[in-house]
């Protein structure tokens, strides 16, 4: 269960498909003129993403490698057509507002990228969770962008007026130019907060996995003596935490490896991006080509 929560966090925050990976830019920019459109688009894409991930994961042993991309596109477009017809029947106002962008979910890079990178190699349940997590990440990014644009550009949120009457809405935020500008500034804010998080992580190091391993031996051997490690203070703290947990071996199995993963992830991600922005840009661009 812990694994799935981590996967959800990964998709919504750490590897957000829109604000971090810059995939699926067309619907992001086009449908964020109002919050209701953004929610409609986000949830439609999430539904397609979950269904296509599950289906592709089920068929991953049967799809020949050479024609996999074409097969994925057919599967995705089948689900997009289903979602399109459902929205036309039950959510007509949103369907009319989104217009052509609903069939264009077919060519949303996020869906094909997850199919190729994750669902084609993973079992069904993790693929479904991956679809949900990436879809929610996409929806959250759209919601954020649309909130900024709708409040500044129309003075409303979800159609309800929330700004004082003296506030004159700046129409530019609803126009196409505002979409680029808002996303640009949001991306800069995300960069800044990630740099901040990396600085914080650097100044407050987590216990390294090497220190955590002796602990595991200690709990298994029921040895009460101080474990052999470089920093005795830190490791005794950890052993205390372990004993407070009901199942010490389980905790010892889970936590150090996750810490190690997270620490590895952090360093891996922060190192290239913070050193030079150009590298990061090239990295995202190569992914955009999908």
């Amino acid at each position: 269960m812990n694994k799935y929560i981590k996967q959800l966090k990964e998709g919504i925050i750490d590897q957000n498909p829109t604000l971090v990976q810059f995939l699926g830019m067309c619907p992001t920019l086009a449908t964020t003129t109002s919050v209701s459109n953004a929610i409609g688009m986000g949830l439609a894409a999430t539904a397609v993403l979950i269904c296509s991930n599950v289906f592709i994961s089920l068929l991953r042993k049967f799809i020949p490698k050479e024609i996999r991309i074409a097969s994925y596109i057919v599967i995705i477009s089948a689900f997009v057509t289903a979602v399109e017809l459902l929205m036309k029947a039950f959510f007509t106002p949103i369907y009319d507002a989104l217009g052509l962008y609903i069939p264009l979910i077919v060519v949303n890079c996020i869906i094909l990228a997850r199919a190729e990178a994750y669902a084609s190699k993973s079992p069904v349940l993790p693929s479904a969770v991956d679809g949900l997590s990436m879809g929610l990440g996409f929806t959250a990014a759209l919601l954020l962008l649309a909130s900024v644009r709708e409040i500044l550009g129309a003075g409303t949120w979800l159609g309800i007026r929330i700004t004082p009457t003296a506030f004159e809405p700046a129409l530019i935020f609803i126009l196409p130019a505002g979409a680029f500008l808002t996303l640009g500034f949001l991306a800069a804010a995300v960069n800044r907060s990630r740099a901040f998080a990396a600085e914080y992580a650097a100044s407050h190091p987590k216990p390294s996995p090497i220190e955590a391993i002796p602990d595991e031996f200690v709990t298994e051997a029921n040895d009460t003596e101080a474990p052999s490690s470089d920093e005795p203070a830190k490791s005794t703290e950890e052993s205390e935490q372990d004993t407070s947990v009901d199942n010490p071996t389980d905790a010892a199995d889970d936590t150090p490896s996750e810490d190690a993963d997270e620490a590895a992830d952090d360093t891996e991600r922060s190192a290239p991006e913070m050193v030079s922005g150009a590298d990061a840009a090239e990295h995202t661009e190569s992914e955009d080509d999908l």
Binding site: A177, G178, G184, A187, N191, A281
Partner: peptide, 16 residues
């Protein structure tokens, strides 16, 4: 913070 994608997006916004 603006290097890379943010600056690209903002310049696209100005052209738009």
């Amino acid at each position: 913070s603006f290097q890379g994608m943010p600056l690209v997006l903002i310049s696209a916004g100005l052209i738009a």
